[in-house]
Amino acid sequence: MLIAPYVVVVLGRFAIRTPLASAHSLVAILLFLWVMSEAMLMALMFRSTKRPGPDAVIGAFAGAIFTVWLCAPPAAANALKAMPFVAIGLSAVVACHVGWAALRARRILAGSEENLRERWISAISELLPPQLVRLAAAELSVIHMALFRWRGPADVPKGSRGFAYHKHLIPMSVTLLILSTIEIAVYHLLLGHWSRIGTIIMFILSDVGFIYLVGLIKSFRFKPILLTPNGIRVRAGFLIDELIPYEAIKEIGTNFGGDEIRDKATLNAALLAWPNVLLRLASPVGRKSVLKGKRSFTAVAFRLDDPEPFIQILRWRLAT
């Protein structure tokens, strides 16, 4: 149900450009608007755990109107503009959403409950789909780290202590980066003899992939595992970021077998190496995964460059 609006956009974009739709432009665009609004509302109801408020409903209608206006061909858009009362009504819905969302965004930016980055993400999410905003923020973070962050301290918030895990990853990461560079050069050289368009497409895809790989490798150093006031923040660059509350930890393990690490209930955050720390949990902790959806785990494994200080501080923290 969450992908229904995207399916409707793709199908509607093709349907509204058919000869039958071109012959009846006004009927086609109104039908597209009705189907798009229904898909947006159904997705909203499916996502919400409680009854959506008026602002959410208006936002769904505004999103449907904007999508239809963006996808409609000129003939259909002109047919809609020829009915001023309909055009004014649709514009009023969009304006109401923008004004209402702007007021909420202003209150979020004026608050101090979250850091500045999270406040901006929350504020923009009032105007645009939150999933799209989160995805764009993540993409910009990767690009910024790959191109502009080369030195400086790691991302350790105030009141937390960071523990590095990147030193054992450096040789393998550099090797992977060199192999990727060679592969990109060979692809460009070979493909350039057959297709200019293919060369351009490969250039864009390979260079974007290279930038992402550089950003991921650098994120291993800038995003260490943290001991925070609320729990352990297990991180593996941009790939994993999970907060494990202290009260959920039952036991700290340093000797464990492969069966326990390979268990589906174990979150293995050790990359390209065998873990040297295992946290057994008293109760399952949920995690949302893009590929596997929402699942829970009862143990967390990771590898630190120097695990002894981490284990000592964690045992003292759990004892007190």
Results as ranks from 00 to 15, higher is better:
residue 217 I to W: 05
residue 40 M to Y: 06
residue 212 Y to L: 08
residue 13 R to G: 14
residue 64 A to E: 02
residue 224 P to C: 04
residue 259 D to C: 04
residue 171 P to H: 05
residue 47 R to C: 00
residue 137 A to S: 13
residue 198 G to N: 02
residue 93 V to I: 15
residue 184 I to R: 06
residue 157 P to D: 02
residue 57 V to T: 11
residue 33 L to D: 03
residue 273 A to Y: 07
residue 276 N to T: 03
residue 232 I to A: 00
residue 158 K to D: 04
residue 194 W to Q: 07
residue 115 N to I: 05
residue 227 L to H: 00
residue 260 E to S: 10
residue 178 I to C: 03
residue 82 A to P: 01
residue 298 T to V: 09
residue 146 A to W: 05
residue 132 L to H: 10
residue 121 I to E: 12
residue 135 L to K: 12
residue 302 F to H: 01
residue 48 S to K: 15
residue 301 A to E: 07
residue 280 R to G: 01
residue 294 K to C: 06
residue 58 I to G: 02
residue 286 G to T: 15
residue 233 R to M: 04
residue 251 E to M: 08
residue 192 G to E: 10
residue 68 V to D: 06
residue 43 A to D: 09
residue 166 H to Y: 12
residue 314 L to H: 02
residue 61 F to K: 10
residue 239 L to R: 13
residue 13 R to S: 12
residue 202 M to H: 09
residue 231 G to W: 00
residue 227 L to M: 03
residue 255 N to M: 11
residue 191 L to V: 13
residue 156 V to Y: 02
residue 130 P to I: 10
residue 48 S to Q: 07
residue 86 V to Y: 01
residue 2 L to M: 09
residue 119 R to Q: 12
residue 72 A to S: 12
residue 189 L to W: 15
residue 28 A to Y: 09
residue 297 F to A: 07
residue 208 V to F: 13
residue 256 F to C: 04
residue 163 F to T: 00
residue 208 V to E: 10
residue 154 A to W: 01
residue 305 D to P: 04
residue 281 L to V: 05
residue 65 I to M: 06
residue 1 M to G: 06
residue 285 V to I: 15
residue 189 L to Q: 14
residue 312 Q to M: 06
residue 1 M to W: 04
residue 285 V to C: 10
residue 260 E to F: 01
residue 219 S to R: 04
residue 133 V to P: 12
residue 23 A to D: 15
residue 219 S to T: 07
residue 224 P to V: 00
residue 229 P to G: 00
residue 297 F to H: 11
residue 128 L to T: 06
residue 232 I to K: 00
residue 269 A to Q: 04
residue 188 H to P: 02
residue 220 F to D: 05
residue 67 T to V: 14
residue 267 L to C: 03
residue 63 G to S: 14
residue 172 M to A: 12
residue 225 I to N: 02
residue 298 T to K: 11
residue 272 L to I: 13
residue 289 S to H: 09
residue 281 L to T: 01
residue 277 V to H: 04
residue 280 R to N: 08
residue 250 K to T: 03
residue 218 K to I: 07
residue 107 R to E: 15
residue 138 A to K: 09
residue 238 F to Y: 12
residue 139 E to P: 03
